[in-house]
């Protein structure tokens, strides 16, 4: 043992992009790894589960968990790592908000399983078998993790000390979070380690935003040619920047794409989707019912648009159906 702080990284329901974002630290990764002992990182290094279980409670200085919680095994690992760690840091949109995988909460568990294992054209499952918790394979009992009714955010399963937001987080934010841990200069517990204000504050197109935004038509990006210097909303393109925490270096805006909301809401907003729907409604410059309906009906997939990342952490946490847990 070197006496250096111990760090663990784990992934749950995620795409792997957050793991990539750690690699994106590039040379800085060496600085970080030199300062710490990585004790668990299944995606990159060969550590054993039993070795982590054998550690003392609180022995790990900080564990970064990315991905949402859908499977029993994920919940189990999150709880085990929580016990072993002084700090648990939710890493990325899925752990923070449920993320894109959280969109599954628009569907019921049974519908997802039957769709995936019985209905999609590419499946070959003539007996219509669905995944079981236990099965006998070659005479041996095999256990599978259970599939929960809904997708949960990490903080709905274990206590989370800090959050690094983003899909994925920027390497800068990850490095800064690590340095905060190492240099013991962490903000109040529960903080999201990014900007306090919404994206508009640091948006490069900020100055082109008119004092009074008024639009009569929502346009999709492929439907229009827009001025790459001008505020998206002023051009009628839906941008969730006003309802999304800043700190992403305006990556999407700089790539000439509107904000999709991956950093989640600011501290005082409980439902990013509801707020997004509210602010967008406000800038519609029509109150005639027919015209209003026409404009509003043109918003593509409002559920998916406003809750692309935040469905599992929203007030309703998903579609209202019987028997949710």
């Amino acid at each position: 043992m070197t006496g250096k702080p111990k760090i663990a990284l784990y992934w749950c329901s995620s795409c792997g992009g957050c793991e990539e974002s750690v690699i994106d630290l590039a040379e800085d990764l060496l600085t970080v790894t030199a300062a710490v002992d990585i004790v668990f990182w299944p995606v990159a290094l060969d550590f054993k589960y039993k070795d982590v279980v054998a550690m003392n409670d609180g022995e790990i200085t900080a564990t970064l968990i990315n991905g949402a919680i859908r499977m029993g095994e994920q919940e189990h690992m999150a709880k085990m790592l929580r016990k072993k760690s002084r700090l648990v840091i939710a890493h990325g949109s899925c752990a923070h908000l449920g993320g894109v995988v959280g969109l599954a909460n628009f569907y019921r568990r049974e519908d997802l399983l039957s769709r995936l294992y019985q209905e999609v054209p590419t499946i070959n499952n003539p007996q219509g078998i669905l995944p079981q918790l236990e099965t006998i394979e070659s005479g041996r009992k095999v256990k599978l993790p259970d599939f929960h009714d809904t997708v949960k955010t990490l903080d709905q399963v274990v206590e989370v000390d800090y959050t690094i937001p983003g899909c994925p987080p920027t390497p800068e934010l990850i490095k800064e979070a690590m340095m905060m841990v190492l240099e013991d200069r962490l903000p109040p517990r529960g903080s999201v380690l990014a900007e306090k204000k919404a994206l508009c504050d640091t948006c490069p197109r900020r100055d082109s935003k008119p004092d009074k935004l008024r639009i009569t038509e929502f346009k999709r990006v492929y439907e229009t040619e827009w001025d790459p210097e001008k505020c998206f909303l002023a051009e009628g393109i839906i941008c969730l920047g006003p309802a999304t925490r800043g700190g992403c270096n305006a990556r999407c805006i700089n790539a000439n794409m509107p904000c999709r909301g991956c950093f989640g809401p600011t501290d005082d907003v409980r439902d990013q989707g509801a707020k997004s729907s509210s602010f967008l409604a406000s800038i519609i410059d029509v109150t005639d019912k027919e015209a209003l309906k026409k404009i509003v009906d043109a918003i593509p997939d409002p559920g998916g648009l406003f809750y692309r990342y935040g469905l599992a952490s929203s007030i309703l946490k998903g579609k209202m159906t019987r028997g949710r847990s």
Partner: peptide
């Protein structure tokens, strides 16, 4: 002020023109 990002969406909503934007302070 510590939370306002200067998105200005509220400015046009006020019937009393009570909301003004300080573009310097954003």
């Amino acid at each position: 002020e510590d939370l306002c990002c200067g998105c200005k969406l509220c400015v046009g909503l006020c019937s009393y023109k009570a909301i003004t934007c300080d573009n310097l302070k954003n």
